[in-house]
């Protein structure tokens, strides 16, 4: 009788479709959350209501945790075979998610914030949590936002995806072609999640928000920019001098965990040093190249 264990390292034997592994990643997270008392919502990917964007593909599992439960979840995940690949500070300009990997279940993005939502991460989560529903993933009932909230979350994701064709397709399905009633329901969620700035990318009115400290973050995310642009935007968006200094200092640090994954082996001091000096240099080179091409958009 054919029963095989399927892990990434075994190679031989049965193969498991990626969407099946990801479904089990969601099931695993729900199992852990149920037992440690953490609140989380499964978002995007396998958890997305299939009627929003039919046939939409995915490559990892995304979950949004109640902010005060994130530390507990991270600790639990590490006890159950999940390896941290990228911590929050290094995940993206929005510092919103940590990436973990499991040998059986693949990649997971654990979000502590959903970029574009507010007014605080706690209140945004609570608004989504208050109207949660469930869907079955990996054979387990998993908590997900309401369908209309999912539609907005997908649009906010598209807002920071630049010219990605998949994001454009999402906008087409979830916003451009929907009827007025659906748009009104989405706009209600824009208000509830204080998502006006990020949503303005979708409506083409981002420049109406130039005075917002987070404007540059969304401008760079939506339209592109150099690494220097990106870090400048992160500093501007950070609230308070201490936070700004922390962001500025991080721009100079090296994420050794990530470098290890990229290299596939423990990194040497020499490699860490090379990366340390390489990143600012790379930023300068991009900036110089953009100035030379006359397309620099970082300064007013």
């Amino acid at each position: 009788m054919a029963a095989h264990e399927a892990t990434e390292t075994r190679g031989a034997g049965a193969t498991v479709p990626l969407e099946v592994r990801i479904g089990f990643a969601h099931a695993c997270l729900q199992w852990i959350a149920d037992r440690c008392g953490a609140d989380l919502l499964h978002i995007k990917g396998a958890a997305l209501d299939p009627t929003l964007v039919p046939g939409r593909g995915f490559s990892d599992a995304d979950v949004l945790a109640r902010p005060e439960h994130v530390r507990m979840l991270l600790d639990e995940l590490r006890h159950h075979g999940w390896e941290l690949i990228n911590s929050f500070a290094y995940g993206s300009s929005f510092e919103h998610s940590a990436t973990l990997r499991h040998s059986d279940f693949g990649l997971l993005d654990l979000h502590r914030i959903y970029p574009g939502t507010g007014p605080t991460p706690d209140r945004a989560f609570e608004a989504l949590w208050a109207e949660r529903t469930t869907t079955v993933l990996g054979g387990v009932d998993c908590t997900v936002p309401s369908r209309d909230a999912q539609a907005l979350l997908l649009l906010l994701h598209a807002a920071r995806a630049g010219s990605d064709p998949k994001a454009a397709n999402d906008v087409e399905w979830v916003w451009t072609t929907v009827d007025d009633a659906q748009r009104i329901r989405i706009l209600e969620w824009v208000d509830r999640l204080d998502a006006g700035l990020a949503f303005s990318v979708i409506t083409g009115t981002l420049d109406d928000h130039r005075d917002d400290p987070a404007y540059d973050l969304w401008r760079v995310a939506a339209r592109g920019g150099t690494r220097v642009d990106e870090w400048r935007a992160r500093v501007r968006a950070a609230q308070g001098l201490r936070a700004k200094l922390a962001v500025a200092s991080r721009s100079m640090l090296v994420n050794v965990e990530h470098l290890t994954i990229v290299r596939g082996r423990p990194v040497s001091r020499r490699e860490v040093a090379a990366e340390f000096f390489g990143r600012p240099v790379r930023g300068v080179r991009e900036q110089v190249a953009r100035r030379a091409r006359g397309i620099h958009r970082g300064d007013p």
Partner: peptide
């Protein structure tokens, strides 16, 4: 496909199984 939660393994049953 049957997974032991939360840590795996992931077992694949095919054919007769």
């Amino acid at each position: 496909y049957v997974a032991r939660l939360p840590g795996g393994p992931l077992v694949v049953l095919e054919g007769v199984a």
